[in-house]
Each structure stands twice: as structure tokens, then as C-alpha cells.
Amino acid sequence: MSSLLAAVSADADLMVAQNVFFALISLVMVIAAVRVVTTGNVVHAALWLVVVLAGVAVQFLFLGAEFVAVTQVLVYIGAVIVLFLFGVMLTKASMGDDESVVNERRGMAGMVGLLLFAVMAIALFDSFGDKRVVIDEPQSVNTVSDSIFSQYIVPFEAVSVLLLAALIGAIVLARKD
């Protein structure tokens, strides 16, 4: 957290409303993310995840990627979370607080996480210390779709095949026989 705040305070335009909002939302997101990985209740975890995902959508708006933000809301909050909730119901995962939701690896995992964050933070400050993102106007859906269907047609086709494969795979795995 401190490094995040440091990053924000390093910005000269601290008082700009955008930055205030950014700091607030980031704070909420990080807290929610921490709750996702620490709460004992699976349903609560899914709901905290909604908060994080919504926060990510807001970050996309900050970055001018409106279409991605809308997709984020539709796909993640609309579909993925519902899937998770179904999964929770189907697997009868424990609904109450459960002491054993976290395994005995907690200390090591915490260290790994902090180490990773430290490494990344150093690398980021080193490489992008004062790069600025200037958003003149949000990307239009036109640009995105033009790009998808011309320049990125092959990855697009690959993703569609992947989705098909995942669909078939999920059916094969989950059906009873």
C-alpha cells in the first residue's frame, strides 16, 4: 500500500479529481482483493471479487477503454461471477466461516507474494518512473472492432476456436455417465 501511495504522491497533479478517485478506488480494490483471498466464507469471497472486478472496470474507464470496461462488467460480473456462485452451490462448499480455508503454507506464500511485489515495484519504478498516460478521448468501439477484424483476425479466430474447445471440454468433463 505504501508504495502505491508513494506512486500517487509522486505525481505532481495530486489534487486532480481523477487522481483522488483513482486512489480511492485502488484502495477499495486492494482491500477487496485481500478479503477475497482471506475470507473464510466462499460466497463472501465471490462478492468481494465482484468489487474488485468492478474496480478494474473503472480503471479501464480511467484509461479510456470504454468498450473493454463494458465487456468487463458484462462478462465478468454478469457471467463469471454467476458461474462461480453456481459452482459454490453445486459443490456444497462450506457456507460459514471455516478455519481451514487457508492451508499451512501461509507464511511461505506471503513471503513469495511480497517478494514478487518488491521485484515488480523495483522494475516498474526503474523502467517507467515518470511515463505519463495522456487520455485525450476514449477509444471508440469502431476503432476496436476495426482492429479486431482486420489486424487481429487470426488471434480472434484462434480465440473463437479456443472457446469452442472449452465448451466441448466443459461438457465432456462435467456430464455424468
Binding site: M29, V30, V37, Q59, A109, A121, L124, K131
Partner: peptide, 30 residues
């Protein structure tokens, strides 16, 4: 806005995610 503020937020989320993957017992939470 600084680029780094987004990148650091992402890094924080990433590390929290990694922590979750490593410590959670329930496959759903992973």
C-alpha cells in the same frame, strides 16, 4: 496520470492473487 500508478495497482492485485492461489484450500477460491 502516471503510468506507474496503474502498473503498481496491477502488481498488487497480481501478488494478492498469487497469494490466494498458494494458500487457499478450496479449489473454488483458487
Amino acid at each position: 496520470m502516471l503510468l506507474n500508478q496503474f502498473l503498481l495497482l496491477a502488481a498488487a492485485l497480481f501478488c494478492i492473487g498469487v497469494y490466494g492461489v498458494l494458500v487457499r484450500r478450496s479449489a473454488m477460491l483458487v
